[in-house]
Design a protein around this nucleic acid. Structure first.
Lengths: 116, 116
DNA sequence: ATAAAATATCATTACATACTGATACGATGA
DNA sequence: TCATCGTATCAGTATGTAATGATATTTTAT
């Protein structure tokens, strides 16, 4: 594979950010903030359906943002890297100043993560 | 508006990350890294069409990630906040370790930002 | 006044992806 | 062995959004 198009750093970055660009996944990451949780824990914490949670987890796992520890029929998920939490924190800080603009931005409409 | 559903912090965060979750917008932000640029500059730097660049810029502007300075018929765009660059840098660092997983993640397929 | 340049906006189209319901799989306990 | 639990996977659907081409708007130059 010589002349093939290498996936640029920018494309990977975009893909990484997509991992964070969904309220469901953010809710899950938020629920993982205090330590490892089973899928059922996360289902209960978020109110999402179990397949939905599992799908998002598999996405986050593939991207290396969370890791799994299998124990019996339970799967314990954890945030894999401190920088994930760091990134979320930095985003929150930035948001504190630009929240109004983000809120009013009509380009994309994120549906409410709660009371769907 | 009393009983209305307040947009949660998580929804806003997701929306903010969406601003970064697109290769075109990242390319534009990347091109803005060294200072302010006109729309034409960005069109040339990225190879995207002018309406496309303008659309993304208006999105980034609404979200407060870039600011504009009008001068004659030119519009000079700048990254508005240091933390935007900081966030991108942190993402790059994280990516250095999880890139393989992100690359192999099949959940979403970001199309190549170059050679479209 | 006219033409050209720089930018913004609009409608349309095509595609990506989040969600759901059904189901399969593996592990545990009776 | 059988039933149940926890989790993963799949196909189908609906929706959101990025890109395009056309056009409007404002500014500068001749």
């Amino acid at each position: 594979m010589l002349i093939t198009s290498t996936t640029s750093s920018i494309d990977l970055q975009a893909k990484l950010f997509r991992g964070f660009a969904d309220p469901s996944r953010l809710s899950i990451l938020d629920a993982l903030h205090d330590g490892e949780r089973t899928v059922s824990d996360l289902v209960q914490a978020t109110g999402f359906t179990q397949p939905n949670v599992s799908n998002h987890l598999s996405c986050l796992r593939d991207c290396g943002l969370v890791t799994v520890r299998q124990q019996g029929r339970f799967a314990y998920y954890t945030i894999s890297d401190d920088r994930v939490a760091k990134l979320l924190l930095l985003a929150d800080e930035l948001l504190a100043d630009v929240a109004k603009g983000v809120y009013e931005c009509t380009r994309y409409n994120v549906k409410d993560s709660k009371n769907g």
